[in-house]
Simulated assay, not measured.
Amino acid sequence: MNDDYEDLQDTYPGAGTFRFGTSRVACRRLNEMVRRGTKTANVALLSDFGGDLDALPRAGRADIAVDWDGAPALVIRTTAVETVRFCDVTEEMALAEGEAASLEEWRRLRRESLGGEALDAAAELVFERFELIEDLSER
């Protein structure tokens, strides 16, 4: 696997690695959604970045999504990043995440995953749009 990472770093210099989801099942499901093109965005609390601006996604940067066991699965490129309040997320933005059929459902799911009912409507989110660059299962 180290050779895979070295090759990927040569192909995509500066790419970081990350994992979609908080469980094996969610990770597999989300990776498949990216492969199918139904997931083209991701959201996180701005506070999760702890003020580290270098950790924020940047438009134009490629990153490697790994599977639950840490093997490279996908390469995505960030196309746009914006900071938006939870209450200002539009239905179009919510649907781009690919996990909900409506804005109302997205808000319910995000409240569960980002902080429960205590999640303030004015909580700042980092909203990242991305495109699939390479499906590494095809290598």
Rank of each mutant, 00 (worst) to 15 (best):
61 R>G: 00
61 R>C: 12
61 R>K: 12
63 D>W: 01
63 D>C: 01
63 D>G: 05
63 D>P: 00
63 D>L: 07
64 I>D: 06
64 I>K: 05
64 I>S: 08
64 I>G: 09
65 A>C: 15
65 A>W: 01
65 A>I: 12
65 A>N: 01
65 A>M: 04
65 A>R: 01
66 V>I: 12
66 V>F: 01
66 V>T: 15
67 D>Y: 01
68 W>E: 07
68 W>N: 04
68 W>P: 05
68 W>I: 05
69 D>C: 02
70 G>H: 03
71 A>T: 13
72 P>M: 03
72 P>S: 05
73 A>Q: 09
73 A>L: 03
74 L>D: 08
74 L>A: 09
74 L>Y: 03
75 V>H: 02
75 V>F: 04
77 R>D: 09
77 R>K: 14
78 T>N: 14
79 T>Y: 00
79 T>L: 11
79 T>D: 07
79 T>K: 05
80 A>N: 06
80 A>E: 13
81 V>K: 12
81 V>N: 09
82 E>V: 13
82 E>P: 00
82 E>T: 14
83 T>D: 03
83 T>E: 15
83 T>H: 14
85 R>P: 05
85 R>D: 02
85 R>G: 10
85 R>H: 05
86 F>C: 11
86 F>K: 11
86 F>E: 09
86 F>I: 06
87 C>H: 02
87 C>R: 15
88 D>L: 06
89 V>N: 08
89 V>H: 02
90 T>A: 09
91 E>F: 07
92 E>W: 00
92 E>R: 13
94 A>L: 06
94 A>C: 12
94 A>T: 00
95 L>Q: 07
95 L>M: 02
95 L>D: 12
97 E>L: 14
98 G>S: 07
98 G>H: 07
99 E>K: 06
100 A>W: 08
101 A>N: 11
101 A>H: 08
101 A>W: 00
101 A>T: 13
101 A>P: 00
102 S>W: 03
103 L>I: 03
104 E>G: 14
105 E>H: 05
105 E>G: 07
105 E>Y: 04
106 W>V: 00
106 W>E: 01
107 R>V: 00
107 R>N: 12
108 R>C: 00
109 L>I: 14
110 R>K: 13
110 R>E: 15
110 R>A: 13
111 R>Y: 10
111 R>T: 07
111 R>I: 08
111 R>F: 03
111 R>N: 10
112 E>N: 14
113 S>Q: 13
113 S>G: 03
113 S>C: 04
113 S>T: 08
113 S>L: 15
114 L>R: 04
114 L>C: 07
115 G>D: 10
115 G>N: 08
115 G>M: 09
116 G>C: 09
116 G>A: 12
117 E>I: 01
117 E>Q: 12
117 E>T: 06
117 E>P: 04
117 E>A: 15
117 E>C: 05
119 L>R: 08
119 L>I: 09
120 D>E: 14
120 D>A: 15
121 A>R: 12
121 A>C: 05
121 A>T: 02
121 A>F: 01
122 A>Q: 09
123 A>M: 07
123 A>N: 02
123 A>K: 01
123 A>R: 11
124 E>N: 10
124 E>V: 08
125 L>G: 11
125 L>E: 04
125 L>R: 05
126 V>E: 14
